[in-house]
């Protein structure tokens, strides 16, 4: 047990020393892995942000019906009754033009604009919510109401939310494909790096085997090397993503301000960061395993 721990500790120290002895080569390797991982990691982080932004916006199955400006009180009551009589309607909410105007006045950037107007430009409106979330029912009902008299305009608010959600789903698949392809590249990078190491250490490996080193002892430092390279590369990827988002956030803030939003690109949750590091370590380990298995066969007795 003690010998086993000693072997592990020495393999780890040896690996760190090996990485430190060739800092430039190590840096390049880490950067290659970092850049390759930064693409899917960055895209994933962007998706997580987008998803969060979309979640804050209601995607309830509802539409708004804006009425003509000259509509009479009894016509409004009539519309209210007809809307409630529609199949699948859960709730009908009336928002008068006075209430809408009052709400606009509250808004800091709109107050001045509203004050400059001599009459209320806003129409009365109904907000109609359906019982189920079926998009086709929603569109069909909205279309029907659109044809009614005194109804000026019907807007299905949730339509663009659904489109964004669909786009996020698509983006998720794209990120997975990207991650898969770049994982193969990462595997190739560690495979080749370790192949080179085995070649430069051929003599040491051969002599160690002659002196009674087990295959495990020979393999161990390479496994550590691959895993460590992966972790460092994963860390570099997270750093690249963080740096890029930091630079982007200035523009994002300006852009979001145009929509009166304080939306910012946020960092990944820690568990996602840990997954990325773990994934990178696993890839490095797999590359090392492939490489070592391929190249250590030649040292077996004949």
């Amino acid at each position: 047990m003690k010998a086993w721990l000693t072997l592990h500790w020495m393999a780890f120290l040896g690996t760190v020393a090996k990485l430190a002895v060739t800092p430039f080569a190590t840096l390049l390797n880490v950067l290659v892995i970092g850049v390759a991982l930064a693409l899917p990691a960055g895209a994933y982080t962007l998706l997580v942000n987008l998803q969060q932004a979309v979640r804050n916006v209601s995607s309830d199955p509802e539409f708004s019906a804006f009425l003509a400006l000259d509509v009479k009180k009894d016509e409004v009551a009539d519309l209210d009754r007809r809307l409630r009589a529609l199949p699948g309607v859960a709730r009908v909410e009336f928002r008068s033009r006075e209430a809408a105007l009052a709400e606009f006045r509250q808004h800091p950037s709109m107050g001045d604009v509203i004050a400059a107007l001599d009459k209320n430009p806003l129409p009365d409106a109904f907000i109609v919510r359906l019982t189920d979330t079926n998009a086709e029912d929603l569109d069909r009902l909205a279309e029907k109401v659109r044809g009614w008299a005194n109804v000026e305009h019907v807007q299905v608010d949730s339509a663009w939310v659904r489109r964004v959600a669909a786009a996020v789903g698509l983006g998720r698949v794209a990120v997975l494909i990207l991650a898969g392809l770049l994982s193969v590249a990462l595997l190739a990078v560690t495979f080749n790096t370790i192949r080179l190491q085995i070649l430069t250490q051929r003599e040491e490996i051969a002599v160690s085997k002659l002196l009674g080193a087990t295959n495990g002892t020979i393999r161990r430092p390479f496994y550590y090397f691959g895993a460590l390279l992966g972790v460092l590369g994963g860390g570099a990827a997270l750093g690249i993503v963080y740096g890029a988002f930091y630079l982007l956030n200035h523009s994002v803030a300006q852009f979001a301000a145009l929509y009166a939003s304080d939306f910012r690109l946020g960092a990944l949750p820690p568990e996602d960061m840990a997954s990325i590091l773990g994934f990178a370590a696993a890839l490095g380990l797999a590359g090392a395993w492939l490489s070592v298995s391929q190249h250590l066969r030649e040292f077996e007795p004949r």
Binding site: T6, S208, G212, A213, T217
Partner: peptide
């Protein structure tokens, strides 16, 4: 040291 280090003898 090599025969010892590959068999896990403490330094």
């Amino acid at each position: 040291m090599l025969p010892l280090s590959v068999t896990g003898v403490p330094f």
